[in-house]
């Protein structure tokens, strides 16, 4: 389905996750972050860039893995993206929600 954001039309799935990372821009990330009352700081951006690069390398993400990444520890990850940090940060980064096969 389509979503209008920052004057652009982007493609998202039923839960609002971008289906094409190429449509992602920093402005879109800022708008998506607002939906969770998050204002993106330089630390947020570092985490988002890391998530995008792991996704491009087909690396499955987990909170523990991110905690061991040397980019952010788990406590700070929760502080940056409260209430389900992995699924919220994934959405803002424009990558799919971590999923199982079913």
């Amino acid at each position: 389905m389509e979503k209008q954001i920052c004057g652009k039309v982007i493609h998202v799935n039923e839960e609002g996750y971008l289906t094409d990372l190429n449509e992602w821009t920093p402005e879109i990330a800022e708008e998506l972050a607002k939906e969770y009352d998050i204002t993106l700081s330089p630390r947020h951006w570092e985490v988002l860039k890391y998530l995008q690069s792991e996704h491009k390398n087909n690396v499955p993400l987990s909170i523990r893995k991110i905690g061991k990444s040397n980019v952010v520890d788990i406590k700070e990850f929760y502080a940056l993206f409260p209430q389900g940090p992995l699924k919220i940060s994934s959405k803002i980064a424009g990558i799919p929600k971590p999923a199982s096969c079913l």
């Binding site: 799935n13 039923e14 839960e15 987990s62 909170i63 389900g84 992995l86 699924k87 929600k97 971590p98 999923a99 199982s100 096969c101 079913l102």
Partner: peptide, 15 residues
């Protein structure tokens, strides 16, 4: 650790 027992839209709807 995922968002639910089912994580894919079609499976969630069906199951």
């Amino acid at each position: 650790p995922l968002s639910g027992a089912f994580t894919k839209p079609k499976a969630t709807e069906a199951l």
